[in-house]
Structures are given as C-alpha cells and as structure tokens.
Design a binder for these strands. Sequence first.
DNA 1: ACAACGATCAACT
DNA 2: GTTGATCGTTGTC
Length: 209
Amino acid sequence: MRLVREDETGRREARIVELEAYGGPEDLASHARFGSTTRNRVMAGPPGIAYVYLVYGMYDCLNVVTEPDGRPSAVLIRAVEPLVGIERMRADRLTVDRRRRAARTGPGAAAAKRRLDATPDHRLATGPGLVAAAFGVDTAWTGIDLCDPGGPLRLERDPAAPLDTVSPERIAVGPRVGVAYAGEDWAGRPWRFSIAGHRSVSRPNPGSG
DNA sequence: ACAACGATCAACT
DNA sequence: GTTGATCGTTGTC
C-alpha cells in the first residue's frame, strides 16, 4: 500500500516497504499490554484508524489499527520509499531535526541541514520516527481514518498493482526492533516484515523467506 | 506527587 | 559498539 498525505498545500506519497505487527494484551511488546489507556485507546477501536505516539520524548511513530473493534492491535509503519512531494518531506524532516537540537542554534541547525542535504531521496523515511517526520504527522493525528479516500492522511492501493504483488519470497521476515524488554518469547517473534533488499528499508532484516 | 522508562536517531569511539 | 538528547506515559508511593 501507499501512504498519502494530501491537503491544500500539496500531495505527498510513498510506498510502504517495512512494518511491524503488534498484537493484543498478551503481546508484551505492544502498548496494548497496559490495557486501554488514554494514549492507546484507539488501538481497541475499529481498524483503519491512525495511532500515533511519541517515543523517547522525541519521535512520533505512525501505526495503523488492524484487528476488529474490541481487539487492541496495530501495525507500525517503519519505512517508506518517497515517491511524490519529496521536497515537502525534506522540509518537514528538517523541522523535526531542529526540534531535536532545540537548545542549539547556528552550528547545530546548520549541521542538521547539511546532513539532510546529503541524504538521498530514498533514505528520507527509513525509520518510524523519520516516516512521521517526513509526513508531518504527530500525536494529534491519532484517531483519523486512514481508509477515508478523502481524508488528509490515508492509505491507497498502488494504482498499477494489486495487493498481492509482493510475492512471499520477496518479503523479509525477522524479529521486531527495540523490544528486548518484552522477553525472549515476544521479542523473538518474526513480526517485522519488509520488502527484501529494498533500499528504503530502515536496516538489514535477516531471513528473507 | 514523583521516578523510571521507552516500538529512535545520529554522533561518537 | 556505545551513548546522549528529551518528555509523555505508566506504575509506585
């Protein structure tokens, strides 16, 4: 599927190339393990809704609620390949990089700009925090319907390809990133999926089976 | 009320 | 391979 943001200022579009699945209360790596809370309450609602949260006090992460109403679950979008509106993605990336260096002016901001200028288009959104940054999405977007064809942020089917275009052997499968705290059982589950060898994937993913 | 901790990223060595 | 930045959420007192 493609991630699209469209409003009066323009259109951004990118191919989703990497994601992770997070299950119900029994999944010790999922925010659903806390039960329903103020932050995660949309996880237990109907599917197709955006769940955006802040990690490490710095980065926003965009999730799509998946299973039916009443079963808390979501898929984290970890990386996308920019296709349309790339300059706007760069502009919003810089805003976020600057927030990270909020206390600094001059050298810090200039260095961030130089790094971004040196980043090729296909590496603009190679990580969940970078996906949200490139699309200008933050926690205020939680709850919006990603399946509304007229919505400002939405999922669209690739116009040139049906859903099952990526054959199973082209999908790399591996453990989810950054969830060691969940214990071996849950951290070890192969619930991270990416397009094998795709240059916009956040980092190498073992086991392309 | 308060302390601890992340579904990260980039700059270090 | 290691570490700092930075703050809302969660669990404890």
